[in-house]
């Protein structure tokens, strides 16, 4: 436990993570100060900046991998896509609980937004993984536990989105989406653990100890960039969900006394 905590502390205090901490600080500042533009644009621009720098360093500065050669550079987009897809699905999960316990539709819009962004990242993850697998493993696709679990994860959340589209009443829709999202979240621990539970083609998670320092830095940089861009996506998508909900709401009526 202590070694886990000290390991976590070492990861969190690494210099490259200032991208994340500064990003969150800027986000908090923008929310508080209420500038003329929407607050999420600050993290959007910040994420885009670091994605540019991260990709440039990944292509030109990071060393090639000892065995995978240049192809190892795909790690800097593949791994962040995996991490952040799971983070975004976690946001959907927490928002689903938020709605079911509070009844506020704002949470429901966050579920709608995060599920969609999560599916986009998950789709990107599968395509990048396929491109990575061809030169390294010698196949575009194989039904190994990790790949299968990642595909099922995406299909499940597509199912949640489809289910959502099929329910008309806003409150019912929110409840159904929330319940479906919580159950669908089961896929995230399964996908994460799949490489440990079952013998698979996919390698296990790397740890800071199993990765070259420059590679680690570029990967973290890209991961923060993916996260910031995803926060921007979710916020933009949330506003869309909000606008849709406002549009479909009936004109406010005089509520009779005594009725709920």
């Amino acid at each position: 436990m202590m070694s886990f905590l000290s390991g976590l502390w070492a990861i969190l205090t690494e210099p490259v993570n200032f991208i994340g901490w500064l990003g969150f600080a800027m986000m908090a500042g923008a929310i508080r100060m209420k500038p003329k533009f929407a607050w999420e644009h600050t993290v959007g621009v910040w994420g885009l900046l670091w994605l540019t720098i991260g990709c440039a360093l990944g292509l030109g500065w990071a060393p090639k991998e000892a065995m995978m050669g240049e192809v190892g550079r795909i790690l800097y987009v593949h791994v962040p896509a995996a991490w952040i897809a799971m983070v975004v699905f976690t946001i959907a999960f927490v928002s689903a609980l938020g709605y079911l316990f509070s009844g506020r539709l704002g949470w429901d819009w966050a579920v709608e937004a995060a599920c969609e962004v999560g599916v986009v990242l998950n789709g990107l993850l599968l395509v990048l993984g396929s491109i990575f697998a061809k030169p390294t493993w010698n196949t575009w696709w194989t039904w190994d536990p990790r790949l299968t679990a990642s595909l099922v994860m995406m299909l499940t959340f597509i199912g949640v989105i489809l289910l959502r589209g099929a329910v008309r009443d806003p409150n019912r829709r929110a409840t159904w989406t929330g319940v479906a999202t919580i159950v669908a979240y089961l896929n995230i621990p399964i996908t994460y653990m799949s490489v440990r539970w079952w013998a698979s083609m996919h390698q296990q998670q790397s740890t800071p100890a199993t990765m070259n320092d420059e590679m680690k830095m570029v990967m973290r940089m890209c991961a923060w960039a993916f996260l910031m861009i995803s926060i921007w996506f979710i916020a933009r998508r949330w506003r869309l969900a909000q606008a849709n909900a406002m549009a479909e709401m009936p004109e406010p009526l005089e509520i009779p006394k005594g009725a709920r």
């Binding site: 990709c55 192809v71 795909i74 987009v77 990107l124 990048l128 491109i131 990575f132």
Partner: peptide, 10 residues
């Protein structure tokens, strides 16, 4: 493969 991966990301 590397360029394809980065291009698809963007």
């Amino acid at each position: 493969f590397v360029f394809a991966a980065y291009a698809i990301t963007w």
